[in-house]
């Protein structure tokens, strides 16, 4: 089983409170906010590694390939994926890809998937991705990638199991759990509760040294510039604003020595006022 995992380097979601908009340039200032692997993508990678190892234990050949469209400076995030256990990695990196919305991004990724298949001389069986990225959080890319490739997509997958050749994916919707079964190519977008991603070990980091990591620019992909990047994006960004979330934040109790009991009384009083 050949598995491709989509990975996106994003600004550390723990630090979104530190982001601000420069009043002059109106651009996002992300100074001091580190880049990390999108958390849910780590769950996708974990799910892929478990599937792969299951196949290998059953005596089959299986591999996990990581694919990312990202600026070259985040190359080390792909090395992290290799250290976690992926077998190889491909990075699609070109200024021409920049400014893309989900439509143009998923197009470039789909072309990347096709080129990987061509390069390896064998098609993939399964593509896994995090259901959404922490930064944009549209949840579009896995679905749109599947559409470009003309294959099944199932998102919000909270459980994924293999039984022989059959894959069983459970999609969590608002009021039901939908179980899908089948074989053949598909894109599954997983949620964070599907598993707990493994730690990266020192052995993994050392092994990652020898694993192939290819960086492809548009020279390798050869895509029409009008179909990629900002130009290939059917949506166009406008202004950025930071919503005003501030409130008075007045002390619940004026008395500095108030106890938890006093606090509970004050809360009950406020609840009472609203009719609870």
């Amino acid at each position: 089983m050949r598995i491709i995992v989509l990975v996106k380097p994003v600004p550390d979601p723990e630090k979104y409170n530190e982001l601000r908009i420069d009043p002059e340039t109106k651009r996002l200032v992300r100074e001091g906010v580190q880049t990390v692997i999108n958390p849910t993508d780590k769950n996708a990678l974990e799910a892929a590694l478990v599937l792969r190892d299951g196949r290998i234990a059953a005596g089959e050949d299986s591999s996990v390939t990581v694919l990312s469209m990202a600026p070259e400076f985040s190359r080390d995030k792909l090395v992290e994926c290799l250290a976690m256990g992926a077998d190889d990695a491909y990075m699609l990196s070109d200024v021409a890809f920049g400014g893309a919305d989900t439509y143009a991004t998923s197009y470039v990724l789909a072309e990347g998937v096709k080129k990987i298949a061509a390069e390896k001389g064998e098609n993939f069986d399964l593509i896994l991705a995090g259901n959404e990225s922490a930064d944009g959080a549209t949840a579009h890319v896995p679905v749109q990638l599947a559409e470009w490739l003309g294959i099944t997509h199932i998102s919000r997958v909270c459980s994924l199991e293999a039984e022989g050749e059959t894959l069983r994916a459970v999609k969590r919707s608002e009021d039901v759990l939908l179980t899908f079964e089948g074989e053949g190519q598909a894109v599954f977008a997983v949620t964070r509760d599907i598993n707990k991603p493994r730690f990266i070990s020192a052995m993994g980091i050392v092994k990652a040294r020898k694993k192939p990591l290819s960086i492809w620019t548009n020279e390798e992909l050869g895509l029409d510039e009008s179909a990629i990047g900002l130009e290939g994006s059917p949506t166009q960004p406008g202004r950025l604003i930071t919503p005003e979330l501030g409130r008075a934040g007045r002390p619940l109790l004026a008395d500095e020595d108030a106890t938890a009991e006093d606090a509970a009384k004050a809360i009950r009083a406020l609840l009472g006022k609203e009719g609870f």
């Binding site: 080390d76 090395v79 992290e80 250290a83 730690f199 990266i200 070990s201 020192a202 980091i205 040294r209």
Partner: peptide, 18 residues
């Protein structure tokens, strides 16, 4: 080195969680 930074981050994550 970049590799040592990665190790440090990996050890730190383990220490923080476990």
């Amino acid at each position: 080195t970049e590799e040592q930074e990665m190790l440090k981050a990996a050890f730190a994550e383990f220490a923080k969680e476990e």
